[in-house]
């Protein structure tokens, strides 16, 4: 059967267990499920919230392109990617990626691949809002994220 790909860009939180259940529902051929959750973290108590801006339409389309590539490259049995936008407080979820395959390595690699490309090519931008109420800065792109993506290009 074709590997189901689920992509959502949403304001509201997601439920990891519910998303894994949805991916597995009615199937007995899946041997490995790997999930990654990205959270809003507070460094030294200085952050009040992150504001995530996105490009509606392209954000979904780009994540779907990345998931399709991962499913093809690693022969995944399914992939789910959910990315939130709007104001997100420390401790809250930002992103969820789930990859399913017959054996563990492809699921690990698939989830890893999707996250590496999502960080550098899905149109989202983070802005920091400080705990002292001062206007925050846009988060800068990190070279280490580009390097993480480039290691898949061989």
């Amino acid at each position: 059967m074709a590997a189901p790909i689920t992509v959502r860009v949403q304001l509201e939180d997601f439920d990891l267990a519910a998303e894994v259940s949805a991916l597995r529902r009615g199937r007995t051929d899946i041997g490995a499920v790997v999930s990654f959750s990205g959270l809003c973290r507070n460094e030294a108590g200085a952050l009040n919230a992150l504001e995530l801006e996105h490009y509606p339409g392209m954000a979904e389309a780009e994540i779907r392109r990345i998931c399709h590539e991962a499913v093809t490259r690693f022969d995944l049995q399914g992939a789910t990617a959910i990315h939130r936008f709007g104001r997100i407080a420390p401790g809250e979820n930002i992103v969820l990626v789930i990859a399913a395959s017959p054996h563990r390595q492809a699921a690990f690699d698939g989830a890893n691949f999707i996250m590496d490309f999502l960080k550098t090519s899905a149109p989202f931008w983070k802005k920091e809002h400080h705990a002292d109420g001062s206007a925050g800065e846009w988060v800068s792109a990190r070279d280490v994220d580009d390097a993480a993506r480039e290691r898949w290009e061989d």
């Binding site: 990205g38 995530l52 996105h54 490009y55 392209m58 990315h83 930002i94 992103v95 996250m115 999502l118 960080k119 550098t120 090519s121 899905a122 149109p123 989202f124 931008w125 983070k126 846009w138 988060v139 800068s140 792109a141 994220d145």
Partner: peptide, 10 residues
Amino acid sequence: IALFPPMTGG
């Protein structure tokens, strides 16, 4: 046509 800085999602 969209113009934007390097992306910082995930």
